[in-house]
Design a binder for these strands. Structure first.
Lengths: 148, 148
DNA sequence: TTGCTCCTCACGTCACGTGAGGTGGC
DNA sequence: TTGCTCCTCACGTCACGTGAGGTGGC
């Protein structure tokens, strides 16, 4: 798209970029969470596009923040892929307005499910932070009491 | 302390109470993350006090929310134990004000480290939520555009 | 006495870590 | 040609899951 065409990156660069390891990337490919670099000769180097990197970054992010198993992640990623297909239909096909509303509703449901997961987690973290803050407050009060 | 003395609970009840499994509890005991029920005869049932349950609940909570390895958790729990010792000295010994300030400073450092971890995680989650909200907003705008 | 939960091995699994030994592009 | 990163097995590890076979308290 942009004049500076994204140069294909090798697996080590990708790992450094998204903060994971080459082993993890190969493993995700092995279990089908990442697509196989197509057209790769047996034993040849894997090459990744900017889009591949974004996808991996999102996977790692969701896994880390939501503690998902790779099986749960797979479900979620498949839903993302389904959404991508719908986006293509949206952009390249000529869906009528009825079909467009169906596509949008699908996407909205997906987003709401993810938001639900994120918010549940955030509220747990908030509670933990409140507990810690309460303890620190008591600590500070005692500090003042015993200072000099 | 309270007139209703806490009845000792069995491992299955504890697991249900804190939302984990009996296997996990035994494993944590095995690696030294939880103390062994002392005075337990070989093959006898494990019994847990209300305090044990609180400790386990805290461990599970920190592990879940902060994605800590059991080794990292162990370090953190040992720091908690050190703090408990200091609390006992505070309550039962007769530390002078200088010593009291040292104890408080120790506790404050511990709390700040934990708060740091919690907040780092929360800001990542916040960013994820913002991304999702932005996507949903675009979705809603399109919805309005194509609605009848 | 009958259930139920508990016990201890011990092997299985998930998500990678970690070499061993070898090939391929700047 | 020399390094460096890459490749594919394949065994190791962490944090448990899951029976197998047996004992113990309401």
């Amino acid at each position: 798209v942009s004049p500076a065409a994204a140069a294909a990156m090798r697996i080590g660069d990708v790992a450094r970029e998204v903060g994971t390891t080459t082993r993890t990337i190969r493993y995700y490919e092995e279990i089908g969470l990442l697509p196989e670099s197509d057209g790769r000769p047996a034993g040849g180097h894997r090459l990744y596009s900017e889009g591949d990197i974004e996808r991996l970054r999102e996977i790692v992010r969701l896994k880390e923040l939501l503690n998902l198993s790779l099986d749960e992640l797979k479900t979620l990623v498949e839903a993302e892929d389904a959404r991508a297909l719908l986006r293509r239909e949206w952009n390249e096909g000529e869906p009528d307005n009825d079909r467009r509303r169906t596509i949008l509703a699908e996407a909205a449901g997906h987003l709401d499910r993810q938001l639900g997961l994120v918010r549940a987690r955030r509220s747990e973290l908030d509670r933990l932070e409140q507990d810690l803050l309460a303890r620190r407050k008591r600590n500070r009060a005692l500090m003042r009491e015993f200072s000099a």
